[in-house]
Every structure is written in C-alpha cells, then in structure tokens.
C-alpha cells in the first residue's frame, strides 16, 4: 500500500441543516503540490478547517502520516509538521516579525536543531531579514503574507496548507510568492495543499487538482485534464463565465 501523507476518508460536515461537506475522500502523497479549487461556497474553507484542526468533522476520518488525527487539536497537528496560513492574514500584531516566527519555532523545532537557527533560516529563505524588528502592521501585504508563510514553515513542517495566499497581490508579487512556495516544495520537500480562487494561478502551481462543488469532490486529476472535465466547466468555469 502506498504511504500517503494525508488521507481524508468519507469526511462530512453539517452545520445545523446545511451540509457543507458530503463524504469527501482524497489522499495526498508526500512531496505533492495539490490545488483545491471550487466556486464560492463549495466547502473549500470548511474542508481546510477540518483538515487543519480548526473544526471537527461530523463524520469520517483524517489520517496524517498514517495516524488518525480526526480529533487531534490544532496545536498538536502543527507540532507534527502540519501547518497552514489564513485567507485573511492572522499574524500576532503585538509581536515583531522575528517573534512571530519564534513562537512557532519554539513549539515545533525537532530535537537536534535550535529554534533560533530555524527562525534565521526561514527569514533568510523568505528574504525577511531586514524586517525582523518590524510589527506586522508596518509591512506591505506581500511581506505580511511572507511572514505568515515563514511562521508556518519554521520548525518541523512537512505539509503546508495555503488558504488563498495570493489574493490581493499584484501580478509581480504573486509570481514572486509562487516562486517561494514552489521552492519550499523543491528544496525542503514540503508537501503543499493550496486553496485558490484564481484558476490560472493554481493551474501554474499545482501538479494535481481537486475540485470541490456543493461539498463533494467532482474531479481529481492533472490540471489539464480537470480543465477539460465537463462537470468542472459547468460547476466552476461555467458559473465563472456566466458571472462575468
């Protein structure tokens, strides 16, 4: 049996009478870059929350590194190397850039490495060394996004989940950030799951796409295949085209 890093099996989430996720199943192998797309309200954010530990699913199981983490609190998932960013950036505004990374590194740096060197290498990697003493409120949006990614990768990070990290950026800034994200995958072997709303961006980044619509996975495959899938065109591209 192939060892998957993340296995989501038959996961559902119901809010009152609203079914946000309906028996969602997929798996991600170590080292993959997977895009999760779908129209607004498809359940992407809910799925993200359930996988990262912000919400418990109503049913189904989530396995990470072969272990059932369905009911594991978020902070223990992070210490096990699963981290995320938020669609609306949530940095610690009372702490400096360096301290934002440090609080994360202190919790999840594996034995044999020091949290200080973890912070330092993340700062260098993301070219944030000139901003260490700044507060998040003094940074540009692009830099705040980088700090949030830095905070997610310091210490032990095996799987990074990015929630619309590119929204609000200029074309150049987005290209730059995509480069950084892909470098994390290439250089460090970090498995990446990106939720994106903008199709071209995710097509360029991900090697595999999952398409969510009305709480179910309607397509799962190579970007080029998925883009030709009639269900996807109706559900996602179709409505997109109709809206504009």
């Amino acid at each position: 049996m192939a060892a998957f890093l993340l296995e989501v099996a038959d996961v559902s989430k119901v809010f009152g009478g609203l079914v946000a996720l309906k028996s969602v199943s997929f798996a991600i192998e170590e080292g993959e870059v997977v895009g999760l797309i779908g129209p607004n309200g498809a359940g992407k954010s809910t799925l993200f929350e359930v996988v990262s530990g912000g919400m418990r699913p109503t049913g189904g199981t989530i396995r990470y590194q072969g272990e059932d983490i369905t009911n594991l609190p978020a902070h223990l998932r992070r210490r096990a190397g699963m981290s995320r960013t938020f669609q609306k950036i949530r940095l610690f505004n009372n702490l400096t850039v360096e301290q934002n990374l440090a609080v994360a590194a202190m919790q999840s740096t594996p034995a044999g490495r020091t949290w200080k060197s973890e912070v330092q290498s993340a700062l260098i990697r993301l070219r944030l060394t000139g901003l260490v003493d700044r507060k998040p409120s003094e940074l540009t949006l692009a830099d705040r996004k980088k700090v949030e990614i830095g905070r997610a990768i310091v210490g032990h990070c095996r799987m990074l989940m990015l929630d619309e990290s590119l929204s609000g950026l200029t074309r150049d800034e987005a290209d730059d950030l995509v480069g950084e994200i892909l470098a994390l995958n290439r250089d460090l072997g970090v498995t990446i799951l990106v939720v994106e709303h903008v199709m071209p961006v995710v097509m360029a980044m991900a090697r595999r796409l999952l398409v969510l619509d009305y709480g179910t996975i309607i397509a799962n495959g190579l970007p080029a295949e998925v883009a030709r899938n009639p269900d996807v065109i109706t559900a996602y591209l179709g409505t997109k085209k109709g809206a504009t």
Binding site: S52, G53, G54, P73, A74, H75, R78, R79, S83, R84, F86, R90, L91, F92, N93, N94, L95, N100, V103, A104, Q107, S108, R151, A152, G155
Partner: peptide, 16 residues
C-alpha cells in the same frame, strides 16, 4: 502575547 492576540492562530503555530 501570541494567545492574547489570536488564540486560534496560536493553536495553528503549535501553542496549547
């Protein structure tokens, strides 16, 4: 101070 700022984000960085 991180928890004071944003308890959910604190969980996301590994803080209990």
């Amino acid at each position: 101070r991180a928890v004071a700022d944003d308890a959910e984000a604190a969980g996301i960085v590994g803080l209990d």
